[in-house]
Amino acid sequence: MEKLLNDDILAQIRDVFQKMQHPVELVLFVKQERCEYCAETRQLLEELSPLSDLLSLKVYDLQADADLAGKFGVSDAPAILVMAREGETLTDLGVRYMGIPSGHEFSTLIQAIMLVSARDSGLSPETRAYLKGLSSPLALQVFVTPT
């Protein structure tokens, strides 16, 4: 299959990934039926994940791996979870993307990987204190379009 990422892009991403600090695992859920972009999303992540030793990829099927999907609260595909990895242990930091990350959203995915790799939100002390003190769930759904 033709590559989605050309050599220039690969070199740029490798450069960015030099600054990764801790391991990150991309967990991708795909489904067999009615998924226009699952195959392409998978290919994209398969081209991306070898670009750093600190980045790994696991691909699961929404139906076949329904237990895992349920555990992570994933109900549709393609779904990309950007998780912190320490050895074999994964920590869900609540960072996910639904759909194919193309165009501007591809950059956002790279930034999300770097964010999780740093294990630091970079937010102000006030914001951190408020969020850590929450007593009820907070769901942020950010709708975007590829441009």
């Binding site: 960072v95 639904m98 939100s121 969020l131 942020l140 950010v142």
Partner: peptide, 14 residues
Amino acid sequence: FAMENPALIRAEGI
């Protein structure tokens, strides 16, 4: 935001 309290916060790009 999610990273600060992943037990309660979920952030999803769609």
